[in-house]
Design a protein around this nucleic acid. Structure first.
Length: 895
RNA sequence: GCAGGGAUACCCAAGCGGCCAAAGGGGCAGGGUUUAGGACCCUGUGGCUUAGUGCCUUCGGGGGUUCGAAUCCUCCUCCCUGCACCA
């Protein structure tokens, strides 16, 4: 009979709410902040969410039971494009739509019984939240960390907005996968590059982050150390500057390449006979989409000679200057010294344009020949053709060459980052208005802090064309805060990643009205001790949040530089090998499983199938077995409450000592596994202990009681509702959710009792295999012969003889010297062979009384095998099988 | 191309120097229990073995280190993930 999970879950959810069981209280003891990446309110929970929250909730509950003051909040990343699209489609306001979805989602989360402190819930679409985005923006503006610039931007034609670099994936919009085009706009930026170095250095300290995420961020920041080198342009006063990380190859340079978009390119060509072809070339490059230009397949290096020569700063030689499409304007100086012998791209280009190749670094293993090279050599080596630097190693040469460049004023050491400033302007409605006013007289004027928030209008025309904000007169028309004249309000809104870059701080004091967050509160709760979310945020969100945290620290708001101490990136939930996603239409609705088996089953099952960090191929096969387990657990606990009396280990029988030992050992391992997020192992361990207590025959009441209470507590983070119910049934006062996590008492762990059990297990298995081999289905009688004393004695002798290496000869010799053993001379040979093989294992094992152990187990064995069981000491038996007896492996006779 | 992660028995998935023919699920087979279905419990699930302590073969493929390798090194093949003409 299935347990009534509906009634139980409803009852305890109410009880938790009524008792405010999960309220986080400022300043009360040791804190622990568990946080899941807050969801975008799409309205429906998917399996990925369930997994995310099941991990987080198990952790929060575990930590709470361990005595931590836990902050475990939930909120909604509620601004963003889908709400606007819904507004266009369904003719509802984004606000109404969003709140509808939030409520749906919250309902489902409540249904699952997560232990959030709902009092702290926030939604980023509330003006009381985004007001602080605006306030923060103004502070950034004051500190030169926000600025407006005309820039080529990634424009998504479908979303009708620009995107940040991080939001363009393989030339496509991260959200809708439309191809991104380049457009030039005036845009607002956050100067994340000012923190490039610190963001990079900080990664070193984030030891409890997955290596993968740290590597991804490192690559994204893309630090490269090198030199900028100045070149005189022949026949003019002009200078150009290149950036290189391989200045050891300076003498191998045979041409210079410049990005086609570089302003110099047209300047040089203008008015010459080259103007037309150069212009055509630039046009051609521009027409290429970002994808075409950066694709791997494209091997061809398009370029054109510009009719100019640069002067090599050391040799004074003339070096032709080309424009080529493989050079990026944004990186370095947009001009590159080309060394075909030591760079593959330069090599390809040289071959296509018949440019010379000069070897300037020789590898150690073989010798390069410029004429015969079929590809470049990019490694380090020894310098050649490099005048005074000949013979130096690349590493040394770089130092010396940089020294000389700097001394002669021809260059300087430089660091370049791939990281670009964060473009935060979005030409969309459902975002935080950027608090800026444009005045014909005063220019760009920030909205005064007292006028915040700049609220989104309640009504706007959602036609699907352009930014609806532009068309709301009441919003656009503004008064200049400075001159009080007529002015125009900025209609761009902020990237929604701004919202998610500090929400974890807001949770510390969600109702704070006078500041972004309470300093005191943040100082207590932050940083987040455990952050849990998907790997897809490895760069964008996690990098932005780190940036915000550092900026806020420099604004004096906090004293820490990293927001998340420990990060767990959960594996994706797959279906048929693919990530579940709405666009693929392969989303599995968790609703069904909750309906059928309840929240406890859904959560416990989710955690039991795989390690949280691993990808998970979804299958609900086995959900019913989790359900069955909970049912059995429920039934058993209800009927076997046991006692609460003091347990004296000494007065217990061996079976009870064993059970007690198992309980304590389970506490120990499960505690460790909870800490390590090995929830599937923890659940398996709990199930094992449960199975042991189920099988125990007439256990001591108090041991039974202890074990059952322990089980209920250990299982509580996974199946909290059922465990509350059982905890109450056991007559415990208070909530199991707030009970004290059990502590293992090592003194109660009885190694010997465990060994006896192991011994019985192997004996049983041996009987099974004999039954099979002898084809005896129903034995009439089974006789065990326990090993004689001399065989036990032989162990230590053999151990000595084999101390260096297993040595059969020496063992036999040593054994024969012992009179007591010599008596059994005819048996020693065969016995010694087996002994040598396992002597180490036996030496470490504790001596147990096999005869007593088997005798005690006799009744059970008789029941199990359905026949008479006899136990004899081998030395007292004349049976032919008796001599097979081995320590811990009694001889067995079946008939 | 670079960086990171993988490849384990029928399937999923642990193990990451000896206690490993390899945890745990699932499936399958046998047995028990049950009025039956179901549910539950037990056992088996690489091969050989003249009844068990043994032997052989096996952890993507080849080579190596070691007394000993699924585990360490090396090369190769394939898969995933991220970045990608970044100078």
């Amino acid at each position: 009979m299935a347990y009534d999970f509906r009634a139980i879950e409803g009852r305890w959810q109410k009880a938790w709410a009524k008792k405010r069981a999960f309220e986080a209280k400022q300043g009360k003891g040791k804190k622990y902040y568990v946080l899941e990446m807050f969801p975008y309110p799409s309205g429906k929970l998917h399996m990925g969410h369930v997994r995310n929250y099941a991990i987080g909730d198990a952790t929060a509950r575990f930590k709470r039971m361990q005595g931590f003051n836990v902050l475990y909040p939930m909120g909604y990343d509620a601004l963003g494009l889908p709400a606007e699209n819904a507004a266009i489609k369904h003719k509802v306001s984004p606000k109404k739509w969003t709140w509808g979805r939030i409520n749906e989602m919250k309902e489902q989360q409540e249904r699952l019984g997560f232990s959030y402190d709902w009092e702290r819930m926030l939604a980023t679409c509330e003006p009381s939240y985004y007001k602080w985005n605006q306030w923060f923006f103004l502070q950034m503006l004051k500190n030169g960390l926000a600025y407006k610039a005309k820039a080529k931007s990634n424009w998504c034609p479908k979303c009708e907005t620009v995107l940040a670099n991080e939001q363009v994936v393989e030339g496509k919009c991260w959200r809708c996968e439309s191809e991104v085009v380049e457009k030039e706009f005036e845009q607002w930026f956050f100067k994340i590059t000012r923190y490039a170095e610190e963001l990079l250095q900080g990664l070193e300290k984030l030891q409890e982050w997955p290596q993968r995420v740290r590597t991804m961020q490192k690559n994204w920041i893309g630090k490269s150390e090198g030199v900028n080198i100045k070149f005189k342009v022949e026949g003019s006063n002009e200078e150009i500057e290149t950036f290189t990380t391989r200045h050891d190859t300076m003498y191998g340079m045979t041409f210079i390449v410049i990005a086609p978009e570089h302003e110099r390119v047209m300047q040089w060509a203008k008015g010459t006979e080259r103007e037309k072809p150069v212009k055509e070339f630039i046009e051609k490059v521009k027409r290429l989409s970002i994808i075409e230009r950066t694709t791997v397949e494209k091997k061809e290096k398009r370029g054109i000679f510009l009719g100019k020569y640069a002067i090599h700063p050391f040799t004074g030689e003339k070096i032709p200057i080309y424009a080529a499409d493989f050079v990026l304007l944004e990186f370095g100086t947009g001009i590159v010294q080309a060394v075909p012998a030591h760079d593959q791209r330069d090599f390809d280009f040289a071959k296509e344009h018949n440019l010379p190749i000069i070897v300037s670094v020789q590898p150690d293993e073989y010798e390069l020949n410029a004429e015969k090279m079929s590809r470049s050599y990019e490694g380090f080596g020894t310098l050649v053709n490099s005048e005074e630097f000949n013979g130096l190693r690349s590493e040394q040469a770089m130092e010396r060459i940089a020294d000389r460049l700097e001394k002669e004023g021809k260059g300087k050491r430089t660091v370049n980052y791939r990281l670009r400033d964060w473009l935060i302007s979005r030409q969309r409605f459902w975002g935080t208005p950027i608090p800026v006013i444009y005045c014909g007289k005063c220019g760009t004027v920030p909205v005064p802090e007292k006028d915040l928030p700049v609220k989104l209008p309640e009504k706007a025309p959602f036609t699907g064309e352009g930014n609806p904000l532009d068309k709301v007169k009441a919003f656009v028309e503004a008064t200049c805060p400075k001159c009080k004249g007529k002015a125009r309000r900025e209609t761009d809104t902020m990237d929604t990643f701004v919202d998610s870059s500090w929400y974890f701080l807001r949770y510390c004091s969600p109702k704070e009205g006078k500041a972004m967050f309470g300093k005191k509160e943040a100082a207590y709760w932050m940083p987040v001790d455990q952050y849990i979310g998907g790997i897809e945020h490895a760069i964008m969100h996690l990098l932005y949040a780190r940036f915000f945290t550092k900026a806020l620290r420099d604004l004096g708001m906090t004293k820490f530089g990293e927001p998340f101490t420990r990060l767990l990136t959960q594996g994706m939930v797959l279906k048929e090998g693919k990530v579940m996603s709405k666009s693929l239409g392969n989303v599995v609705d968790p609703g069904a499983i909750i309906e059928r088996f309840g929240a406890d089953t859904a959560r416990a099952f989710m955690l039991s199938v795989s390690l949280p960090t691993k990808e998970l191929e979804w299958s609900d096969k086995g959900a019913d077995s989790t359900f069955k387990f909970l049912n059995r657990f429920n039934e058993f606990v209800a009927k076997n409450k046991g006692g609460k009396g003091k347990i004296s280990q000494k007065r217990l029988g061996s079976k009870d000592r064993l059970l007690l030992s198992k309980a304590h050992r389970t506490i120990e391992t499960v505690t460790g596994q909870m800490q390590a997020f090995e929830f599937n192992f923890a659940l398996a361990g709990i199930a094992r202990l449960f199975s042991a207590v189920q099988k125990a025959e007439k256990p001591d009441r108090n041991v039974l009681g202890f074990t059952v209470r322990t089980l209920v507590q250990l299982l509580a983070p996974f199946a909290p509702h059922l465990c509350e119910e059982l905890w109450a049934k056991l007559g415990e006062k208070g909530l199991v959710s707030l009970s004290k996590w059990p502590k293992a008492d090592r003194k109660m762990i009885d190694r010997k009792a465990e060994q006896v059990e192991e011994f019985i297990e192997t004996v049983k298995q041996d009987v099974e295999s004999i039954k099979q081999l002898a084809k005896i289905q129903k034995p009439k009688r089974i006789v065990f012969f326990t090993a004689p004393e001399w065989k036990w004695k032989a162990i230590s002798i053999a151990a000595k003889a084999c101390s260096e290496k297993p040595d059969f000869g020496a063992t036999v010799k040593a054994l024969m010297q012992e009179a007591e053993i010599r008596k059994h001379g005819n048996e020693v040979q065969g016995f010694a062979k087996a002994l040598v093989a396992r002597v180490k294992e036996l030496e470490e094992a504790e001596r147990i009384d096999e005869f007593a152990a088997l005798s005690e187990e006799r009744k059970n064995l008789e029941k199990e095998f359905g026949c008479r069981i006899e136990i004899e000491k081998a030395e007292k038996s004349g049976h032919a099988k008796a001599r097979n007896a081995f320590p811990l492996k009694p001889a067995i006779f079946v008939e």
